[in-house]
């Protein structure tokens, strides 16, 4: 099957590559762009570990073809910190113990960034609802909720 050249911008850097149409976006991000912060948990579009922001939308990148992202702007966990300073959401996860093994964390943080962009001051229930697409096997979620609340406060001040 014919390969196609695609161009994407991930965290501000251009990546151009020839891909098979069946390549999933998560494989492009990890294997072609070499950005292994986005994880593959279930690969069945359930767990959200592969969540990245594609043209402003949080997407499970294992449920999207790389070729569909031709021309897209993508943000992954690697793009959040600026000049070595943690993004407020990352800081929240650090301060509130929002992770244990850390496997779900990159997807959780990207989904949280979408949540806070759409709703800068969410209630606890809105946070839980907004992170429904992301599973964590370790924390029991409470510290993740606390981390997002921390970030919401910090981002508003």
């Amino acid at each position: 099957m014919s390969k196609k050249v695609i161009n994407t911008k991930i965290n501000g850097t251009n990546y151009t590559a020839e891909v098979e149409p069946r390549m999933l976006l998560i494989h492009f991000i990890r294997d072609v762009a070499g950005l292994t912060g986005s994880h593959i948990g279930c690969e069945t579009s359930i767990c959200g570990a592969c969540t990245a922001i594609v043209d402003g939308m949080a997407v499970k990148t294992c449920a999207m073809l790389a070729i569909q992202a031709d021309g897209a702007e993508i943000n992954t966990i690697e793009g959040l910190a600026e000049n070595g300073d943690l993004h407020p959401i990352q800081e929240g996860f650090w301060e509130c113990h929002g992770l244990q093994c850390g496997f779900c964390t990159p997807g959780m943080i990207m989904a949280a960034s979408q949540l806070l962009e759409r709703n800068p001051n969410p209630t606890e229930s809105e946070i839980r609802h907004g992170l429904e697409g992301n599973l964590c096997r370790c924390t029991g979620y409470q510290h993740i909720v606390n981390a997002v609340q921390y970030a919401a406060q910090k981002m508003q001040s």
Binding site: V59, K60, M64, G130, L131, G133
Partner: peptide
């Protein structure tokens, strides 16, 4: 429907 990411796509 589903979750945020599913509704986005």
């Amino acid at each position: 429907i589903g979750d945020v990411q599913v509704r986005n796509k």
